[in-house]
Design a protein around this nucleic acid. Structure first.
Lengths: 155, 155
DNA sequence: CAATATGGAACTAATCTGGTTGCAGTTCAA
DNA sequence: TTGAACTGCAACCAGATTAGTTCCATATTG
């Protein structure tokens, strides 16, 4: 049943990857290899991160994405919001409930408060964690670098 | 973008409705009118609440659903879990990331911790709120009862 | 026995997700 | 200046999920 899309997970993956390859532009091809997906899927998510100001992208040969800010300054909440685009966590009724019924007319207002608090609590946790921390956690688990190859055609 | 299903909202609506009509069995027909949906949709959700032990259902004429426990003893977390059936809030990668890549091989373990904490924070809020509180909040907003009609064929 | 209810199966339409291809446009380097 | 490599966008596909719907077997009441 209803689980969130994997875009947030992939987005954090990508940012950790960019952190690892600090300042070297990473192509969607290379990133896609690490994520194990199609380059276009990566570009869609990188595009959202770019629009949110989290990464910079350079087109053309030798182009690619790099962090627009220090990873210590990027919270997972920003990443989450960049890819989920402000969608509410909890849905209300698909159809407006019966307004002639005391319960139907007032349940949504009552739910709004609780659901909003629950989402805020979730977001507060994401706000406290930075990309740098996740990346550090990943690096700590790496025995050896393990490259995946650059994917760049070496001249 | 990925929002949760509306089942949790409808489930709380139904429980608030049952709280309002305390001990009088409510048919899926009546409940569907308040929710503004099809009786079968209601029965599906009531079925999940029944399997979770939150409501009792009586088949046959003059049957319907009623609360199995005092509304003060039912937390929204139980409701959420009853209808969402233990699905994780955050999805990880659709395909296992490249294990030859240091980031790919370790990102999921790193994400697991943060995502788990975020979900736990969300659930903690739901755990603190009871159906009785939501129902009280609804009742407080009701100027007049506003019945929706019983939908029961009066003899 | 007849009316009214649940419960389950099956089907639909709409939406979302991830994946894929194709192509226009930009950049760099030989 | 040509060609390789890259981004970005649009279009399309298959699979899953959601909410809605119909139909029917079964149970209970009066």
């Amino acid at each position: 049943m209803s689980t969130m899309s994997s875009r947030a997970a992939v987005a954090v993956h990508l940012l950790a990857f960019l952190t690892w390859r600090r300042d070297e532009p990473v192509s969607s091809q290379q990133a896609a290899r690490s994520v194990n997906t199609n380059p276009v899927v990566v570009r869609r998510i990188v595009g959202a991160l770019r629009r949110a100001g989290l990464v910079e992208v350079q087109p053309g040969a030798a182009g690619g994405a790099r962090l627009a800010r220090a990873p210590e300054e990027i919270s997972l909440l920003e990443v989450y919001r960049a890819v989920e685009d402000g969608a509410p966590l909890f849905a209300l009724h698909p159809q407006t409930p019966c307004q002639d019924c005391g319960v139907g007319a007032n349940i949504q207002a009552a739910l709004c408060g609780v659901f909003g608090e629950a989402q805020a609590a979730m977001e507060a946790v994401l706000a406290r964690v930075t990309v740098a921390e996740v990346a550090a956690s990943v690096f700590a688990r790496m025995g050896h670098p393990g490259d995946c190859g650059t994917g760049r055609r070496t001249a």
